[in-house]
Simulated scan of single mutants.
Amino acid sequence: MPNSELMPIGAFAQCSGLTASALRFYADSGLLPPAEVDPVSGYRYYDADQVSRATALRQLREIAMPLAVVEAVLDAGADEAARLLDEHVARIVDDAATARQKAAVIKSALGASVPGLPIAALKGPVLADAVEQVLTATAHEPGMAVLAGLHIEASHEAIALTATDRYRLSTRTLVPAVPAVPAEQTWVGTVDGDDLRAALTTVRRSALVRIEAVPHGIRLRMPEREDRYCRLLFQDFPDHRLMLASLGEATTRATVSKDLLLRVLEEHPGERVSLHISDHGVDVRPPNDEDPGVQLPATVTGAALRIRFEMTTLYPAVSTAIGPDVMLDLRGHDRPVTIRSADRGDLTTLAMPVKFDHSA
């Protein structure tokens, strides 16, 4: 008779999250043998100490880890197990990237005979830099694929690139080298950001890139190089134009050295940062406002202001600005801040502050 403290296979399946059939398979493969098997009935029983191994086994199989590697991870020490996990994930990422690239080539070939709608022609290095800058404001969130995309609005005169993760919004406007969209017409779509990133190396090495709209995506055509296909995302892009139109006038403006501000932010110890903006300049402090900060020289106009940011919001917004100086247009401690180059306005980023606790 089995030990009364042992669990039958059904109870153990509930504790571990594995099905009874999976437990039988892992027992037969030697990965998770039962603690005891009734010699008469053949019923399998498991010990409570086996739950953690069974749970780890289930989690490893959920990330498609081969059985041989699963066994090595389960029997390894913490450092070796972490190394094996990293190798497995890297292999999956590489395989996915390869599959994505091959699929893009196949799609491009399938659509080669389909005439594309010309959108714009841009210098490759200029387009690559703009896409790279704006895509810093993207995010991968479950159910919100559009937040990982680049929104494109093309007209006869300009092409606007926009991305947002809901805490930042970056937009840059480029003048096409060769206008493609007919006068008084526009083309609007949101392109998969990962597809664009994968194409950037080729785009940057091309003197001229012609962008064409094709079914379900865009095609990047480059002389003497393979066409690149990027998917369209069909979720509605957030209404950024309404947000931009409702910002209102800035009540405070500060122009500060980009390098100095970035250096102070890099050395800042916390996850949040407080900016005190006054006639004396920009004072970068911890969020409690009690500890001394670092005073940066700045040209300031308008009312004095205190405002707080998550470091993950403010730092990338400043780092992608063009030029040696950044201009901060502020509208209050709870309103979006516009961050752009002091002398080039074609890249603009909005950064959302965090709630200011006046009792602090």
Score class of each variant (00 low, 15 high):
residue 3 N to A: 12
residue 4 S to F: 09
residue 4 S to P: 08
residue 12 F to R: 01
residue 16 S to R: 07
residue 18 L to C: 08
residue 19 T to K: 04
residue 20 A to Y: 00
residue 26 Y to Q: 03
residue 27 A to S: 12
residue 27 A to W: 05
residue 30 G to N: 08
residue 34 P to E: 10
residue 35 A to C: 10
residue 39 P to T: 03
residue 42 G to I: 07
residue 47 D to N: 07
residue 49 D to G: 05
residue 57 L to T: 09
residue 58 R to W: 10
residue 60 L to Y: 06
residue 65 M to A: 09
residue 80 E to A: 09
residue 91 R to D: 05
residue 93 V to P: 02
residue 93 V to C: 07
residue 114 V to I: 13
residue 114 V to T: 10
residue 116 G to S: 12
residue 117 L to A: 15
residue 117 L to N: 15
residue 121 A to Q: 14
residue 122 L to M: 15
residue 123 K to L: 12
residue 127 L to V: 01
residue 130 A to C: 10
residue 137 A to E: 06
residue 147 L to A: 04
residue 155 S to G: 08
residue 157 E to G: 11
residue 169 L to H: 01
residue 171 T to M: 13
residue 171 T to R: 13
residue 173 T to E: 15
residue 175 V to G: 08
residue 180 A to V: 02
residue 184 E to L: 06
residue 187 W to Q: 06
residue 187 W to C: 11
residue 187 W to P: 15
residue 187 W to K: 04
residue 191 V to Q: 07
residue 196 L to E: 02
residue 197 R to G: 05
residue 200 L to G: 02
residue 200 L to Y: 01
residue 209 V to M: 09
residue 209 V to L: 07
residue 210 R to W: 12
residue 217 G to S: 14
residue 217 G to E: 09
residue 220 L to D: 11
residue 225 R to G: 00
residue 232 L to P: 00
residue 232 L to V: 02
residue 240 H to F: 06
residue 240 H to L: 03
residue 244 L to E: 13
residue 246 S to Y: 06
residue 246 S to R: 10
residue 256 V to W: 03
residue 258 K to I: 00
residue 261 L to E: 15
residue 264 V to Y: 00
residue 272 R to H: 09
residue 272 R to D: 11
residue 285 R to I: 02
residue 287 P to Y: 03
residue 287 P to C: 02
residue 287 P to W: 01
residue 298 A to W: 13
residue 305 L to T: 08
residue 306 R to Q: 08
residue 309 F to E: 10
residue 310 E to S: 07
residue 315 Y to T: 12
residue 319 S to Q: 14
residue 320 T to R: 01
residue 324 P to C: 09
residue 324 P to A: 11
residue 326 V to P: 13
residue 327 M to Y: 02
residue 330 L to W: 04
residue 333 H to W: 04
residue 341 S to K: 07
residue 342 A to C: 01
residue 347 L to S: 05
residue 349 T to N: 14
residue 354 V to Q: 04
residue 355 K to M: 11
residue 359 S to C: 00
